[in-house]
């Protein structure tokens, strides 16, 4: 276990380093002069030179990278080119929307995916089982923004059950209202991710049903469903846990799109706005925070999977 933790933590650190390098150098080295972009078409050469100096762009790229990383280690992501506000503050505020949104989507997604996945596996020879998995296939193919639009119009506007768009200005000062405005966005993400989880659960449950111990339990008089739920379900849950890392990454990306549809002031909306504003310092920070989140979540999921899966514990030692 110690060896596994050490290797996996090393992979996480390498991943974070690679992410920082990729993001920094892609935004700097690819064609396009940051100073020219900020200055716009009307800027005089003197203004451009000034911008370049104030950003430290006259320094060698490696020095700039060093400065950025040194700042990162102190939790300093630099200042917004547009507003001058520290990027870390903006990101911190945005995370108070994005993280609850992601958490809520995960809860909804699991609540949709696992029970329906088990049902569709148990009834895989009947019409209801087929209908559930067919519906999951169909939902997984719909663009998340389209589902969001339909929910906003259908549930928000026509039924008037929940807020159509936006997030209270006061944030979480009024928890009820803040929570309400996250329900539809979370549901949009959860429908798509839940459909994917449903398909994983279904194939894991089908496999569990053909395992000897589930068959034996059924042969000894348990109903197939009971045998699956009491003996097969742990295996099913473990399979779901093993794909959860990838699914959580997909969920965060879904949040980027859904935040735009529902005009939520989260990290994804900020990223999209800042790309539009060419605020490259903020874009850089936001991209790094999102990828860091994904990498850390992947790490945590892997460690948890290792801890709860006895088969993984036995195969201690190597990473694969």
């Amino acid at each position: 276990m110690t060896r596994f933790l050490a290797t996996r933590a090393l992979l996480l650190l390498v991943g974070l380093a690679v992410a920082a390098i990729l993001i920094f150098f892609t935004l700097r080295v690819l064609p396009g002069d940051v100073a020219l972009t900020i200055g716009g078409t009307q800027a005089t050469p003197e203004q451009i030179a000034h911008i370049r100096r104030s950003l430290g762009l006259d320094q060698p790229v490696l020095v700039q990278f060093g400065d950025w990383v040194a700042g990162l280690l102190h939790g300093d992501l630099g200042q917004s080119l547009l507003t001058g506000v520290p990027v870390a503050d903006d990101i911190g505020r945005a995370l108070t929307v994005t993280l609850p949104l992601a958490g809520l989507s995960l809860v909804f997604g699991l609540a949709i995916g696992i029970p329906l996945g088990v049902v569709s596996a148990v009834r895989h020879r009947r019409f209801s089982g087929f209908a559930i998995s067919a519906a999951a296939q169909a939902v997984a193919a719909i663009p998340i923004v389209f589902i969001g639009m339909l929910l906003a119009v259908g549930v928000g506007l026509y039924l008037r059950w929940l807020p159509v768009q936006g997030f209270p200005n006061a944030g979480w000062a009024n928890p009820r209202r803040a929570f309400d405005s996250l329900i539809l966005p979370a549901l949009s993400i959860a429908l798509v991710e839940g459909a994917v989880l449903l398909r994983f659960t279904r194939s894991a449950a089908l496999e569990a049903m053909s395992q000897d111990f589930v068959r034996t339990a059924a042969a000894k008089g348990m109903t197939r469903t009971r045998a699956l739920v009491t003996h097969g379900l742990p295996n099913v849950i473990l399979s779901v846990v093993s794909v959860l890392g990838i699914q959580l990454a997909a969920l965060l990306v879904g949040a980027v799109l859904v935040e735009v549809v529902f005009q939520l002031p989260g990290l994804g909306k900020a990223l999209v706005d800042d790309v539009g504003n060419r605020d490259l310092v903020k874009v850089q920070g936001e991209l790094l925070v999102i990828t860091a989140l994904i990498l850390v979540v992947g790490f945590v999921v892997d460690v948890v999977h290792r801890l709860v899966d006895p088969r993984e514990r036995q195969a201690d030692g190597d990473l694969e």
């Binding site: 690679v18 892609t26 790309v275 990828t291 994904i294």
Partner: peptide, 17 residues
């Protein structure tokens, strides 16, 4: 490591540049 980078984020990053 690269598998952890979602397609849409790569696309947004490229768009920024």
């Amino acid at each position: 490591i690269l598998i952890a980078f979602p397609v849409l984020l790569i696309a947004v990053m490229l768009t920024a540049v």
